[in-house]
């Protein structure tokens, strides 16, 4: 980037996390305002999502490079595997996953954090991977839809989505499932209303919501017994 000056997000941003952006419109507006005010790419990272600084024993994959233009070396740990990347600093986590690492399970639907199709888990929390840059995630534990199953054995949430027909075209499904996995961990599945509210960041244009609700309740029962 020509202008690398880091504009801090302001005093509040230590508390700002994407989970809140997801659920709290006030925080979301604030976030957008602040980002718009910076005039440069957001290079936040440290205080955005608390990195757990995990080490890995797995070998680092071959290092694909960005052809042409400036690039930044970064390492991403995805589904337990570490990848070294030379990445254009403008690359979102979503585009790094899809276009560079060919992990296309995470979907692109709007590029604005409005549809939730790109939802992945970063250190166990759900994050819109289109709203965050790849270079911000060195040291984070990233789980995508490809990393949920245990070998051939589906994650209970994946199995429940099939059983309850929680999708039609399937395009929003990876995001729905990642979001639903985090939802149970957040303990935001205490009632139907609560599930509906806390899953409203994931749009399903096919209208599978009632089945998604049933799938989440089904998976909740299975994982709690």
């Amino acid at each position: 980037m020509a202008d690398e000056s880091e504009t801090p997000l302001g005093p509040d941003c230590g508390d700002l996390d994407e989970l809140l952006i997801f659920g709290n419109p006030e925080t979301r507006r604030q976030f957008i305002k602040q980002v718009a005010g910076t005039g440069v790419a957001i290079t936040i990272g440290v205080n955005f999502v608390s990195g757990s600084g995990l080490t890995t024993e797995q070998p680092v994959a071959a290092s694909p490079t960005t052809p042409g233009g400036d690039s930044v070396k970064t390492k991403l740990k995805i589904n337990g595997k570490e990848y070294a990347l030379d990445v254009d600093p403008r690359t979102t986590l979503l585009d790094a996953l899809r276009e560079r690492l060919h992990l296309t399970g995470s979907k692109k639907g709007c590029d604005h954090g409005q549809c939730g199709a790109c939802t992945v888990l970063v250190n166990g929390r759900r994050v819109n991977s289109c709203l965050t840059l790849a270079v911000m995630h060195e040291g984070d534990e990233i789980t995508t839809i490809e990393g949920l199953a245990n070998g051939e054995e589906l994650h209970p949430m994946q199995a429940a989505f099939i059983e309850h027909d929680g999708f039609q075209c399937g395009y929003c499904t990876p995001g729905q499932i990642c979001s639903a996995v985090a939802l149970l961990k957040e303990n935001h599945a205490k009632s139907d209303d609560e599930i509906r509210e806390w899953m409203s960041g994931n749009i399903c244009r096919c209208g599978a919501y009632p089945n998604i609700l049933a799938a989440i309740k089904g998976a909740k029962t299975k994982t709690s017994t």
Binding site: L103, T104, G105, S106, T144, I145, E146, L148, A149, L154, Q158, A159, F161, I162, F167, G170, T173, P174, I177
Partner: peptide, 10 residues
């Protein structure tokens, strides 16, 4: 095609 869709393999 459910399995393909819930695993991101579709």
């Amino acid at each position: 095609d459910g399995r393909l869709k819930v695993t991101g393999a579709a």
